[in-house]
């Protein structure tokens, strides 16, 4: 009898959390598009991590004797104008695009959440001021801002990344602030205030960690866009510089050879499309999952 009363509540809570997870997982699985997106994304991650093991070639080594070879068993996706294996460059390009995309969006997300948390927690004039600043940034056309920044700072991958971070921050500030406005009214924050803990401590320990989950969803959604922006800047010659195996830059040079060497721009194009698509499908599915309206 005694043991029963002790174990009962425990089993109850475990089944509850389990079933909630199960429901989420079930709904996640239900949408085939989300599954496709996740599958493609996992494939890219694996390819990016194991790129050096998957290909015998070097992504930047010039080999003039093998230039413009059509797809064959030795070069699945053919070779480019200086004889580099295109598949190899795409694999290393996946490292670059995914790596930069994730870095950029995560940095923007972090900076944005901290600013948003501060603005939301402190509120009043300071919060208003920050939000007006963000409104101004949101009114900028993102691509033009990124282009102007990279052109001004000098075209390079680092500057392109910096530009995208700046362009992406306002969205996260808005999101984090609206969350922080809710969190700051909660009991544990009030309690921390009564204890006389410093504002910095409260923001770092209580506000930021509690606004982070919607930020994570937004990060997934933004990853696709960030990869496209990097590729676009690369295509325009404002991002990664040759001989870096960046997808957008590859299409930019490959395009001139399209009529005779169709494989050159085609495969990097497919890679950009699939990588972006996977993030967008995943982001779309995640939004559905968290949108209470779509439960029906």
């Amino acid at each position: 009898m005694n043991t029963q009363t002790e174990t009962q509540p425990q089993t109850l809570t475990t089944t509850q959390t389990l079933s909630k997870q199960k429901i989420l997982w079930y709904r996640f699985k239900q949408n085939p598009l989300t599954l496709v997106g996740t599958g493609i994304l996992l494939m890219f991650i694996v390819l990016a991590i194991f790129a050096p093991l998957l290909t015998p070639y070097d992504p930047e080594m010039v080999n003039m004797s093998e230039r413009f070879e059509p797809p064959s068993s030795a070069h699945w996706f053919g070779t480019d104008e200086v004889g580099r294996d295109i598949l190899t460059r795409i694999l290393y390009g996946a490292r670059l695009s995914l790596g930069i995309g994730i870095t950029v969006v995560v940095i923007a997300g972090l900076i944005g959440s901290v600013i948003g948390a501060i603005a939301g927690y402190l509120g009043k004039a300071f919060g208003q001021f920050i939000m007006r600043m963000m409104d101004i940034m949101l009114a900028f056309p993102p691509l033009v801002l990124a282009m102007a920044l990279t052109a001004a700072l000098g075209p390079s991958l680092i500057n392109a990344m910096l530009a995208i971070v700046i362009v992406k921050i306002p969205v996260y500030v808005r999101l984090a602030r609206s969350e922080a406005l809710v969190v700051r009214e909660q009991l544990f924050v009030k309690a921390a205030e009564t204890f006389g803990l410093s504002k910095v401590w409260i923001i770092a320990r209580h506000i930021v960690p509690n606004v982070i989950s919607p930020i994570i969803v937004q990060v997934t959604i933004d990853l696709g866009e960030a990869i496209l922006l990097i590729a676009t800047l690369g295509f325009l010659g404002l991002g990664a510089q040759p001989p870096m195996p960046e997808w957008g830059a590859m299409i930019s040079t490959g395009w001139e050879f399209f009529l005779d060497q169709w494989w050159y721009p085609t495969f990097p194009g497919i890679a950009i499309f699939l990588a972006t698509l996977s993030f967008n499908l995943l982001g779309d599915g995640l939004r559905d999952l968290l949108d209470p309206k779509s439960t029906r």
């Binding site: 598009l33 590729a231 676009t232 499309f273 499908l281």
Partner: peptide, 22 residues
């Protein structure tokens, strides 16, 4: 539903410079 959504998500996944050139 899935075909329609896939079609629309393709739009944000294709870089404009690529779809334009195609």
């Amino acid at each position: 539903d899935y075909i329609g959504r896939f079609f629309s998500i393709t739009g944000v996944s294709l870089p404009v410079f690529l779809s334009g050139l195609i």
